[in-house]
Design a protein around this nucleic acid. Sequence first.
DNA 1: ATGAAAGCGCTAACAC
DNA 2: GTGTTAGCGCTTTCAT
Lengths: 358, 358
Amino acid sequence: MAVTLAEVAAHAGVSPATVSRVLNGGYPVAGGTRTRVEQAIESLGYIANGPARALAAATSDLVGVLVHDVADSFFGILAGSLQRALAPSGPGAARKLAVVCNTEGAPETELAYLALLEGQRAGGIVLTGGAVEEPEHTSALTARIARTAASGAPVVLCGRPPLPLPAHLPVATVMFDDHGGAFRLAQHLLALGHRRIASIAGPPGLSTTRERLDGHRTALRQHGHGVADSCAALTVHAGFERAAGYDATRELLRRGAPFTAVAAANDTVATGVVAALRDAGIRIPEDVSVAGFDDLPFCGDTAPALTTVRVPLREAGTLAAHLVTGRRPLPPGGITTLPTELMVRGSTAPPPDERSSP
Amino acid sequence: MAVTLAEVAAHAGVSPATVSRVLNGGYPVAGGTRTRVEQAIESLGYIANGPARALAAATSDLVGVLVHDVADSFFGILAGSLQRALAPSGPGAARKLAVVCNTEGAPETELAYLALLEGQRAGGIVLTGGAVEEPEHTSALTARIARTAASGAPVVLCGRPPLPLPAHLPVATVMFDDHGGAFRLAQHLLALGHRRIASIAGPPGLSTTRERLDGHRTALRQHGHGVADSCAALTVHAGFERAAGYDATRELLRRGAPFTAVAAANDTVATGVVAALRDAGIRIPEDVSVAGFDDLPFCGDTAPALTTVRVPLREAGTLAAHLVTGRRPLPPGGITTLPTELMVRGSTAPPPDERSSP
DNA sequence: ATGAAAGCGCTAACAC
DNA sequence: GTGTTAGCGCTTTCAT
């Protein structure tokens, strides 16, 4: 058996309660006593039993991190910085453990993992990535989160819109300015002279899809001159994988409606778009411009380098970690919106017409 | 308070033990009783208390997954497939939770997390990625793992060499044929006509670095004609990030020793190599060929597409999950070596000399 | 500032 | 097949 707290207590000549106190801090313990206990812990190689502690305290050091898929760099980067920020360096820092759950973006899986984490008495939960905006799921999710938060475990929504919850619950929201980013990206394309701009949007019903598409269309509408009219014909919904971008682009080409630029749901999809266009003999950006979203690390190394919108994933992960551990107080109103930034690279250029007739 | 097992028992008119039995299976319970219990669980919305269960059973549903960095696609993909395989679909499947820990490749961090996971009574542990081959650390690690495994929690070493442990302990090793992959990659370069092949190797002291470099050099040596002689001058050790590849390449250029091909430690490093060469006015693959390792998803989309060695990350993750949960018995000898595959793409071509003088 | 004692919710012998 | 009964190792009032 492993060394127990009681053995440490015996070894140090104090009561279990005292050992518990020096372990958990926040309680007055005489200097000498503390030292003796610490030495006992050290010499016995004591490691606290997490489950026992969690059972007694009704909360654990586990932090649930729900992502659509860690293999996707978007989530990998987010989860990575989150995990890192959860483990503050320095001696005796109360190390939180990140329990990473792939929801695949499926509502039922999301709920199932939340139940599982509740069962583990997770000390906090971070839900990342776009939310499925279906009334039934939203209310089920809201109810479940309300329970978790009411039990004292902070919940952070990261990269998704806030939920209608009582203000007193420990729930915070960290959003990305997807709308603004998409808006500025569309403006960039319009400024280059593009008028027929296609969208390979994300899955319908997802908050991220809605926000990016809204920002995009708002810019087109604002530009006027009927630029927004062809939206329906030039929009294809697809998944977030490269293959989805490839297939959606083929579908777009099949439709036959002309376009000179494509705004993809994200960078990964954009690589699929580029591949499909190229396979169709279309040059980028000479014939058609392509833009991504997120600014994943590979964006600068693709051919051509991808124009995109930077989403501050690392910052978001760190912030989410601080909020969920209570190291940073909940922001007033509970919502923080992180800025996005347009990154112009080689995959966008003026449309063919503009070049031939300057 | 949450609903407890005792309440479920009362509601169903049975004893707590019976409820526990239907919950955990593997024990005979009369059909009718089982049904009543299941209904009680359902109607009360019972969720088992993980910590309590872990305390009593001395093992939890937590599986520790140590990675260098989840934000790195290599580990993201590995961790993703592992996590997915840990959560078998189907009703009532005993869902294991993946606790992802970023070790940054640092020995102390690795040990610290192992201690933390031991404290959590993790039901299994998977250590992924290259191992730091320093005698002191290896023995500390071996001791720690021996303890964990002795307590009944399976340990899987994934992508790193086996450790000298008693055969009766539940420890399995899943390796990649890095040596063979690097060997074949070097052969490919030699076959193209390259004779001065540089290596941007990984950090010294890491098993992955050693194996890939060994494979590479074995091929050069085997080729003869003094091809292996320039190894020292043409080898630079660096980290696994893109920036490391960039800097190492500049260092290589600074040295002045001529080379016509570069084998990078991995794909990410290779992108940095490509960027540095390009910034120096060197064309790829016309002037210099570049190859990566791992075959991460972006390899086909870079300019030019990257020749590399495919490492079966998804397969490894799934296998590791099966081994650590006991769903797959430990292989005889405890070691499984997964094959790697040479992926020839556009970044490698014959060296300049060969073209001008055919 | 420290100790004593009562659980936290579950599993696992052991009876019946 | 099902019930009884001890703990598992820790936290946390409540005393002192």
